[in-house]
């Protein structure tokens, strides 16, 4: 068994936390995991991604191009940036909530989220898109968009471990005062996605 997940987003969106939750759930299911995160200078509002590799063998933590089974995109442009990692027929779930960059350095293309979302839909059959930021806000805070996307991944039924394993990790790892809102975000997203 080999299953590679890539999470893409912008610094501050909770990509590292989401990656840790998936890795812990995979470990509970008895697999080896290795992850690569963006930590340091790029974290400051830049593009960030986490690679999570799950399997029977220990491998290097970077996913080769075209090998990810699942791409969780917390932001449209960042999803597109990382789509070359997704395998043909791989699953992509994208948060439609755009985060426009701070400034437009000379020569940087205009950011048109709608155009990028159309590109994603055209190039990834079975793409699941939803405004997870809004959905998380419904649950209590926009900050739970990362956990909402984990709920979506569970709802899509593609993870190599059970939803219960993931829920148990969330219960154990998320500090108590944020637990309820994250649980709610997870459940709303899961139900919304499995209903799609």
């Amino acid at each position: 068994m080999k299953y590679d997940i890539l999470i893409a987003g912008v610094g501050g969106q909770g990509v590292v936390l989401a990656s840790r939750m998936l890795a812990l759930a995979a470990m509970k299911a008895g697999y080896h995991v290795s992850t690569a995160e963006t930590i340091g200078m790029s974290q400051r509002e830049g593009s960030v991604s986490s690679h999570i590799r799950i399997g029977e063998d220990v491998s290097g933590s970077l996913i080769p191009a075209g090998q990810a089974d699942l791409l969780l995109g917390l932001e449209p442009a960042e999803t597109v940036r990382n789509i070359p990692f997704l395998k043909k027929a791989g699953k992509a779930i994208v948060n439609t909530h755009a985060v426009p960059p701070a400034s437009k350095p000379p020569g940087s293309p205009e950011y048109d989220p709608e155009a990028l979302l159309s590109f994603l839909k055209a190039s990834c059959p079975g793409l699941l898109c939803l405004d997870f930021t809004e959905l998380a806000e419904e649950a209590g805070t926009y900050k739970a968009a990362n956990v909402a996307m984990l709920g979506a991944a569970a709802g899509a039924g593609t993870l190599p471990f059970s939803e219960e394993a993931l829920q148990a990790v969330l219960e154990a790892e998320i500090p108590e005062k944020y637990r309820a809102v994250n649980r709610k975000a997870f459940e709303i997203a899961r139900d919304r996605i499995s209903g799609l």
């Binding site: 610094g11 597109v80 293309p109």
Partner: peptide
């Protein structure tokens, strides 16, 4: 890939 906005650390 279509042209993507530059998102440098800030």
């Amino acid at each position: 890939l279509p042209p993507l906005p530059v998102r440098a650390p800030t």
